[in-house]
């Protein structure tokens, strides 16, 4: 599959899911289980992505400059520093460690 196909197929899937919600009777959201699973699904996917983006390198797990950068980011998010500043801080930490290493 080439990249354009991936981009377009994924976009169509996400768009269809949004619009499909308007066709569903509102009673479904009154049931707790689907709402709970969807919220947790978001959390599990994001957490998995944090882990793979921090530790993954191809099919290997490595500890490098990304680990301290993400720890700094976690500390800053805990201090309620705005998103963009945290992202920049994480990039700077990783870049400086690589520069000095």
């Amino acid at each position: 599959m080439n990249t354009w196909t991936i981009v377009l197929l994924a976009s169509i899937c996400v768009l269809v899911l949004k619009i499909a919600g308007y066709l569903v009777p509102p009673k479904v959201v009154e049931k707790p289980a689907p709402t709970r699973i969807t919220a947790l699904l978001t959390i599990a996917l994001l957490a998995g992505l944090v882990s793979i983006e921090t530790l993954g390198s191809g099919s290997q797990i490595v500890l490098d400059a990304r680990v301290p950068a993400v720890l700094v980011a976690a500390a800053l998010f805990a201090l309620r520093v705005p998103f963009v500043l945290v992202i920049i801080a994480a990039a700077v930490v990783a870049a400086l460690i690589r520069l000095w290493a």
Binding site: E53, V70, A90
Partner: peptide, 11 residues
């Protein structure tokens, strides 16, 4: 450090 920024964005 943009790879670390990606991980931080998910976080």
């Amino acid at each position: 450090g943009l790879d670390a920024a990606a991980a931080a964005a998910f976080l």
